[in-house]
């Protein structure tokens, strides 16, 4: 493991789902859930993926984990191209990349004891068994803030926050490099959410973990991420460090998204709330050209035909918008509608 190679790298990742319909269940269309996504994550770094429901966040996560076969593109784990690995080949690399879900309950066997759930991967990967395993599980429990006595309990006896801690302990058990966390705190109340976010941050610093952190919550994003990728209809429209993203967003969608989120401060006068018209179009029928042109306040005629590429328009700042070309200044755009 070296520091120059990214822990996880994804190039032009595409995942399409066929839509079947009619009597014969013939393929009648394609959901372009992920439509050419590129990013990389270094050790100890969190890349946040944010966007509205259906924009493809979870599909990116599942494809990177190879729970879904990519339609095209490349996935590199610690420099090794695992895109075409068979499940058998993937097995040895599986340890390196683990996952934490939104609802750990649904992914845990209700008839297994908590200690066995966390210890299972240790056994599966032949890392520890018997007493050694129990000791390791106990220390994992402690590390995530659960009392080792709780190892004998069943998952339904835990609260939402505790179950999420269990999920984190299970992911940590095999000492991974990368953790894909898909909305890991979305089901939790604010007071418990803070506990879990702090735990994730501590663990990252301790083990130099790389996080692919998926969330629709912009507050959580700003807190946990180092860099953030904003997705819209299967594509990354902007990717940069979080401070730049929150203070000087360049993509019109990012700008609207940030302005739309309610802020818990009645004294703060918002500069200008951008209310986007209409709904997010279906990824089965994305608009031509720039996917955002049907809702974009700054759209010009070319936006309907030109497919904007994600370009590094300023150092470390990638944007996919024809009105934000390379070398753009950060001046506001003039609305066209």
């Amino acid at each position: 493991m070296s520091d120059d190679k990214p822990s996880l790298e994804v190039r032009n990742l595409v995942k399409h789902f066929p839509i079947h319909g009619g009597l014969l269940q013939r393929q009648t269309g394609t959901v372009r859930a992920v439509d050419g996504v590129t990013f990389s994550i270094r050790r100890g770094e969190t890349l946040g993926v944010v966007g509205e429901s259906g924009c493809g966040k979870s599909t990116v996560g599942k494809t990177v984990l190879k729970l879904l076969e990519p339609t095209a593109g490349e996935i590199l784990l610690d420099g090794v191209d695992v895109t075409d690995f068979s499940p058998g080949q993937m097995w040895s690399h599986r340890r390196q990349i683990q996952t934490v879900f939104q609802d750990p309950y649904s992914s845990m066997n209700p008839r297994m004891r908590a200690g066995d759930i966390v210890g299972e991967p240790l056994e599966n990967f032949g890392l520890a068994r018997g007493k050694a395993k129990d000791e390791q599980v106990a220390s994992l429990f402690q590390r995530v803030g659960l009392r080792p006595e709780n190892m004998r309990k069943f998952t339904h006896e835990f609260s939402g926050g505790q179950r999420q801690r269990l999920g984190i302990a299970k992911a940590l058990a095999v000492n991974p490099e990368v953790i894909v966390a898909d909305e890991p705190v979305s089901a939790l109340d604010v007071s418990v959410q803070a506990q879990v976010l702090n735990l994730l941050i501590d663990l990252q610093e301790e083990y130099k973990l790389a996080y692919l952190f998926i969330s629709h919550d912009l507050g959580v994003m700003r807190h946990i991420s180092h860099r953030i990728a904003v997705m819209y209809l299967g594509r990354v429209v902007e990717l940069t460090d979080k401070r730049t993203l929150f203070t000087r967003p360049l993509h019109p969608y990012t700008e609207a998204l940030l302005s739309a989120a309610p802020v818990p401060d009645p004294a703060r006068k918002r500069a200008r709330r951008i209310i986007l018209p209409g709904d997010v179009p279906s990824p089965a029928k994305p608009p031509s050209g720039c996917h955002f042109h049907t809702r974009c306040p700054y759209a010009i005629a070319e936006c309907k035909t030109v497919d904007p590429k994600l370009l590094e328009v300023a150092p470390g700042h990638q944007v996919a918008c024809i009105r934000r070309p390379v070398g753009t200044d950060f001046a506001p755009l003039t609305p066209t509608q």
Partner: peptide, 14 residues
């Protein structure tokens, strides 16, 4: 007070 401080804020650079 606890609730207010527990919220990760999108408008504040923490």
């Amino acid at each position: 007070r606890g609730l207010m401080r527990a919220i990760p804020r999108l408008d504040i650079d923490a």
